[in-house]
């Protein structure tokens, strides 16, 4: 990252799940840590998320998903990121993800997964550490 440039984070909720408490709390924590947060809100398709990341030149993509649809949706997002030539943007995921799926998603390229009870300060620090 360039010196003096604000970190730009995309925070999106893919799929149909509307529980946005975690996404909003993290968005706010990132803002308070001096980041620019592109907040797209709920019900985002993989295509919308990837296009947004592309147009907004973000440094990190944060996805929050609690519906259980993560194994269908997240790999699709990773695939589209690669196709769009922005597979280098780190993706982090928050939500209820069973341990087996955590391993599989990491194997496919997700940088980190934060389950229930994660500290937002830790997530913020993690974002800083990878940008």
């Amino acid at each position: 990252m360039k010196k003096g440039k604000n970190i730009r984070v995309l925070i999106a909720k893919p799929g149909l799940d509307g529980h946005d408490r975690g996404a909003k709390v993290l968005a706010r924590a990132c803002r308070d840590a001096g980041m620019e947060v592109i907040y797209t809100g709920i019900r985002q398709s993989p295509e919308q998320i990837v296009e947004t990341a592309l147009q907004e030149d973000v440094d990190v993509i944060g996805l929050s998903i609690l519906s259980g649809a993560h194994m269908s949706i997240i790999p699709r997002i990773l695939e589209l990121l690669n196709e769009s030539g922005i597979g280098d943007i780190p993706v982090i995921v928050g939500g209820i993800i069973p341990p087996d799926d955590v391993e599989e998603l990491k194997r496919r390229g997700v940088k980190a997964i934060f389950g229930p009870g994660s500290s937002v300060n830790e997530i913020v620090e993690f974002i800083k550490s990878i940008t």
Binding site: G15, S72, R76
Partner: peptide
């Protein structure tokens, strides 16, 4: 499930991965 709650049929593109989930 969420597609039922949001008025999408199971074969709608937004239903991907959500069918029978919650």
């Amino acid at each position: 499930d969420l597609p039922t709650q949001m008025g999408y049929d199971s074969d709608h593109s937004m239903s991907l991965g959500e069918v029978g989930r919650v």
